[in-house]
Design a protein around this nucleic acid. Sequence first.
DNA 1: CTCTGTGAACGACTTCACAGCA
DNA 2: TGCTGTGAAGTCGTTCACAGAG
Lengths: 212, 212
Amino acid sequence: VAVKTQPVPDPAVRRISLYLRQLESLAEKGIEKVSSKQLAESLHLSAAQVRKDLGYFGQFGRPGLGYSVADLIGKLRQVLGTDRTWNVVVVGAGDLGRALLRYRGFQRKGYQVVAAFDVESSKVGRKVGKVPVHHLDQLESIVRDHGVRLAVLAVPTEAAQAVADRLYAAGVKGILNFAPCVLQAPADLAVGPVDIAAHLEQLSFQVHSAGS
Amino acid sequence: VAVKTQPVPDPAVRRISLYLRQLESLAEKGIEKVSSKQLAESLHLSAAQVRKDLGYFGQFGRPGLGYSVADLIGKLRQVLGTDRTWNVVVVGAGDLGRALLRYRGFQRKGYQVVAAFDVESSKVGRKVGKVPVHHLDQLESIVRDHGVRLAVLAVPTEAAQAVADRLYAAGVKGILNFAPCVLQAPADLAVGPVDIAAHLEQLSFQVHSAGS
DNA sequence: CTCTGTGAACGACTTCACAGCA
DNA sequence: TGCTGTGAAGTCGTTCACAGAG
């Protein structure tokens, strides 16, 4: 069936993650209802923005009452696809890769890191946290066996493109790329670039241009 | 002197980091000239976009010839403030903090990590890479002594706000926040939020909404 | 002829403002 | 009355297209 999805602005999708994070925090505190105004203020946004963003995906609120925290969490997880568990692999078990393997945030959001890969024999065969590190040779077979569709790329820049190509060929549909380079990718492969140094540059720009 | 700075779109500033990264890569290969078109294509952008972005900061090119790679690198570093070295501290020496302490990308961009902090006595007194880990008590004195203006925050969510307040009070002007929460900050404190789990959510959204 | 720099046109995202339900 | 959902208005960022320098 051809589903006619009207395209949602990218910034709105990014904010959905923020809403969800905030809602989960409210739920932990036992809060059951929230208004667009409250949600907006906690994130330094406008109430209209919140309502418009949620409106792209459905009608989740009740006029006069606001939103049910629990319901909205469920709906937004559905939107983001985190209402089910995703199997993920981490490629590269250097410093960053190991940190990501120990990072609990993925698990908490419904991502299950099933394997890591590296080429260095000193790392292969060990475990980082609960995740076994395999040789890169086993990438394809493990990705296929576990039905992995998301990968985290934490390899040196020079190796990033080649690994990305192999991941795609093995069936991976999305790559979170920590290498500071632009990946060439076909249309049906999603790439999320994360350049930590660039984030610091943005900060120094702001400080530098405000201060002088 | 009141400097009349016409405001630059945020997305443009983010792309400046990308241009710089690409230019540095070209320089390593010995390439001396580049056109807006070449730069654009390597980043999947339009040539007009590149010219417009650079135009916010000055006239760096020569009609008919393009841009000098070396010159443009120098100019963009000036823009981003990375033409000089910034002293940086990392707060939190957990898994993520330690990975960031070992990360060489900061150094390469002109950031010098001078100290790390934690509250756990098992970590205090040791070094991670070449960076000494101090007790959080010493935050203020070390920040002041080294004239630190940028900080990386890699502490548990519960502690993030309190540490941010202390950093600001000690004179820090920019915080790269890896904790998944919104920091309350005065106008003259820049905060760069980095939520790794949220980036993965964006990916699963794309995969999930494209695939069905 | 090539390629930059830039006002003008366009499109995308945000804010406004209000109709309608609880 | 309080608050959502949503067209309409407004703002901001991108693309276009061309004058002018090399």
